[in-house]
Design a protein around this nucleic acid. Structure first.
Lengths: 361, 361
DNA sequence: TCTTAGCACTCCCTTTTCCTGAGTGCTAAA
DNA sequence: TTTAGCACTCAGGAAAAGGGAGTGCTAAGA
């Protein structure tokens, strides 16, 4: 059954009222919020109808109405106003994105914090997990007993490791080895690096001391951990301020759930992607999220990979504001990391120290 | 006034009883716990004396006794039994320390998680902040528009960055530049890298495109951020299970405090270091920690730097167990990172994939 | 057929009262 | 110095009472 215009107005009033107040909304409040020119009795009839249809529910007989997941869903899909960010808000986001130093891990942590600050909900970031392959290997000779492995992966991530050896190696061996690694290992994903391949490389390099296995070990290790998508949460404490998480046990369960990055990665499984995705209460696959909502925005992480940034909160969440903010952040991230990986404007010189970053009026 | 032996026994019983039960301890409970051969009335007299001396207090007239900070302090200093870790516990710690892949940031995060698991309190790690200097700079040429900066700092931390240029550079320029950087910048801390130095390097390299400033910018940025000690918290949610944090507001304040790494770094200011340090309630400088306790163990992070690993919990904390565990973890970390930075035994080969790490019976 | 005033009713939440029991401090005797 | 005995205190839970927001229903009006 299609809802009448008035019913939609009423539903919207209930949803928004409940988002504001966290308390069941009664017929009088609806009247006040909608400004409809009818009596509260009429509203009551409509409320009863909406309840019958499953958009609203009553905590108990003599209470006001609270939106159901179905109600929120309709609200999110059709009723909610697109929220435009104010100039000062976009300004702030831009400024923060600019001022954050690169280094993907730290960047994502900072962006998460920013999302928390802007929405006051716990924020999570998930860096996409496209399984990486090796693009280039360099070995930097330091002294007979140590060298640095520098590893360039697809996605332009660079990893490094300082290796101390319990025996001596030589500059020449390292040069020879890195050439061999570049020849034999480029384009390989972790599964395709076999013990045989390592052994043959070792022989080819004339490496009798096991340097090859050290390098190969790091390679495999790096590829494996880069496969497990990097996830990150911040601002969990903010849950505790919300009336729906006054029960420490409930809060504990959710925070605990969020603190395991494997759980977060599971969110990537969320199908069909538009630009912002809203998962309301029971729409969530995970039991622990069943009475919370998750809003996710995906961004272009460069090299054809996508990342997610989102927040977790009660189903009673200001979806329009949250969605708008996340979308804007995701957009900014895409610009920063995405597509042609073209450097941001004003690169070079801007990086230099003392280039006081607030001087951009 | 020096306490009598019996009073010490009683104090210990109260502290340990309260640690176990989180409820005020009465004269009968003390009798049961100590096994003293006197009556409860005698205990009551002693309890009254200990209260008068400030070791204990009563939540209200007709309640049992609870230790004060002074009481805990005496307990920690003199009364508590050195707790030996069981073989399975040390075993477990060793195993986890071994299996954690290097990469200092991730390592510390993992060790923090381990501390949380072992103690069931939020754990924090603070990597010491000895201001680093440059040991070596390498520039790896990738293609005309991009190269990698590899930076080796004191403390053997390696940092890197992939740079995309909006213009072309050449292999020769990069080689020349890295030689110049190594000649002019080694041993310099962030403050001593002046714009003049950069300018003269740029001239010397014949760099007309600003590559030098990009590299120098990264250098400065890295040195600056490495100065702000890296801190890390995990397991905050565990607080919510404790009876003293049932008030969501209280929990929120503490978790919030912990989530700001600047606050954590402030803990480094804690003076005079033995091997494990206990800060009980009001002994903490920070207001937010005034009714919690912090236990910190310091470890050798190599290159003369020290790091901290610790936990935060209610003053009612099993100090002996926590201290023992942290000390053991810190010891393990020192062995792993510390001193001569000598590689752990069985290095090389062990790293290789499939070297099933549990097979060390 | 839709709207509305009126009214009885429901039931949550808060406040109040009462009660129990653990634990105390004091006194007086051993 | 220790101990038995006893009156007293007080937090915390259970039960009772009251208030009030909000409902659904009915019957009359548009």
């Amino acid at each position: 059954m299609e809802l009448t215009g008035r019913q939609k107005k009423i539903l919207r009033a209930v949803v928004e009222g409940y988002i504001d107040a966290a308390e069941p909304i009664g017929s009088h409040t609806v009247l006040a919020r909608t400004g409809l020119t009818c009596s509260s009795a009429t509203i009551r009839n409509e409320l009863a109808a909406l309840t019958r249809e499953g958009y609203l529910e009553q905590p108990h007989t003599s209470a006001g109405r609270v939106p159901t997941a179905k109600g929120y869903r309709l609200y999110v899909n059709e009723l909610m106003m697109e929220r435009e960010l104010s100039h000062s808000e976009t300004e702030e986001i831009n400024r923060k994105l600019q001022s954050t130093p690169a280094g993907t891990d730290k960047l994502m942590a900072d962006v998460g914090k920013m999302a928390t600050e802007l929405t006051s909900y716990p924020a999570l970031t998930i860096s996409a997990a496209a399984s990486a392959t090796v693009k280039r290997v360099d070995l930097i000779y330091l002294d007979p007993n140590s060298f640095i492995i520098v590893l360039l992966l697809t996605g332009d991530t660079v990893k490094n490791k300082l290796v101390h050896l319990p025996f001596s190696s030589t500059q020449t061996l390292l040069t020879r080895l890195s050439a061999l690694f570049n020849a034999n290992f480029t384009g390989l994903s972790e599964e395709r690096i076999t013990p045989e391949l390592i052994a043959s490389t070792e022989r080819a390099a004339g490496d009798t001391m096991g340097v090859t296995s050290v390098v190969a070990g790091f390679l495999i290790e790096t590829l494996m951990t880069s496969k497990g998508a990097g996830a990150n949460v911040s601002g969990e404490a903010n849950l505790l301020k919300l009336p729906e998480f006054q029960d420490p046990d409930k809060a504990h369960r959710l925070i605990n759930y969020l603190s395991d990055s494997r759980n977060l990665s599971a969110l990537t499984a969320a199908p069909d992607f538009g630009d912002v995705k809203v998962l309301i209460g029971p729409e969530n696959a995970a039991l622990e999220l069943r009475d919370s909502s998750v809003v996710l925005a995906s961004y272009d992480a460069g090299d054809g990979m996508r990342g997610l940034i989102g927040v977790v909160g009660p189903t009673r969440m200001d979806y329009s504001a949250v969605a708008a903010k996340l979308a804007y952040i995701a957009g900014g991230l895409s610009r920063l990391l995405g597509a042609g990986s073209s450097p941001p404007a004003g690169f070079g010189k801007l990086m230099i120290k003392g280039g006081d970053s607030d001087a951009q009026k």
